[in-house]
């Protein structure tokens, strides 16, 4: 009977349910990530890792102007894409949450569904619109106009592509936050004499900042590490940090340098996440999540 009592102990049951998944992530994700931290302090010789500890890889990544340019370009790209997504996603998510009624779920799922078709196919589709022989340019040329250079193989095309890929995350995050937002508060603000814009800036925006912040992080991380989009939409001056990173694991086989780039990529994303996390005030949010 003692054994039976043990099996019903909530802590044991909790552990039996939660630990397998947690251990799985630890072994198959956390350990590999830690392993590239170790490799980043080694060096590579003829496609083989040599365990000689040094800081050379980091010196190269952080001082070589070429790599710094890629890093900076990725940061600017991720920032621009995040800003554009926030500006576009807000009115859309707001509209669905407030006026969607019984169609809310369909409307928001429709914005998220293309995400599940995978980035390669989505970029393929977008290339047929924006590329040099894409619909836009072919139409312009057919009707005797000059093609729009900015749309084909440029950073602008990359940015459009990245917004296309990741804006679903932003919309869903803001939408979920707005679902828990009490729209009556806006009526109160109105009665108290606030103009719509003022009510938005002082009530809606701050109370839903947590949703926006989560959306920003979810868009920033994949955009900052983008490889496929800049490769197929970015053109000759469109390579980002992710492209130079994957290059180390392909043609050149410089594993140690590539690992250091991976670590830098991860640390910059982590710093960004922590920075955004600090701006969230749990007491001033309409969001109710886990552990309610």
């Amino acid at each position: 009977m003692k054994n039976r009592g043990l099996r019903f102990d909530p802590r044991i049951q909790f552990a039996m349910l939660a630990l397998p998944g947690a251990a799985f992530v630890f072994v198959f994700l956390v350990l590999p990530l830690l392993s590239i931290v170790v490799f980043s302090f080694w060096r590579t010789e003829r496609y083989e890792l040599i365990p000689e500890w040094n800081l050379e890889n980091y010196r190269i990544v952080l001082t070589d102007p070429t790599y710094l340019t890629f890093l900076l370009r990725s940061l600017v790209m991720a920032t621009v894409v995040c800003l554009a997504s926030v500006v576009y996603a807000w009115p859309v998510a707001y509209f669905i949450a407030k006026h969607g009624g019984r169609y809310r779920l369909v409307l928001v799922l429709l914005t998220a569904a293309p995400f599940l078709t995978g980035i390669v196919l989505r970029v393929t589709a977008l290339q047929q619109i924006l590329g040099p022989i894409g619909l836009v340019n072919m139409a312009l040329m057919t009707f005797g106009f000059e093609p729009i250079e900015a749309l084909m193989y440029s950073n602008v095309a990359s940015a459009i592509g990245l917004v296309y890929l990741w804006i679903p995350f932003m919309i869903v995050a803001i939408y979920l936050s707005l679902l828990n937002f009490d729209f009556e508060l806006l009526e109160v603000a109105k009665v108290a004499g606030a103009r719509p814009w003022r009510a938005f800036l002082e009530v809606t925006w701050p109370l839903n900042w947590i949703g926006t912040a989560i959306g920003i992080v979810l868009v920033f991380v994949p955009t900052f590490a983008a490889t496929v989009t800049p490769r197929f939409l970015g053109g000759p001056n469109g390579s980002l940090f992710g492209n130079i990173l994957e290059h180390q694991f392909g043609a050149t086989g410089t594993w140690a340098l590539g690992s250091a780039m991976g670590v830098v990529l991860f640390l910059v994303s982590l710093a960004f996440i922590l920075l955004i996390g600090r701006t969230i005030d749990p007491k001033r949010t309409g969001f109710t999540g886990i552990g309610r």
Binding site: V25, V221, P222, L245, G262
Partner: peptide, 18 residues
């Protein structure tokens, strides 16, 4: 939920290396 905040390319290369 952590894996949401790790870029896919990073998951790819780190498991390759591991």
């Amino acid at each position: 939920l952590g894996p949401l905040f790790v870029a896919e390319v990073l998951i790819g290369i780190s498991t390759l290396m591991f």
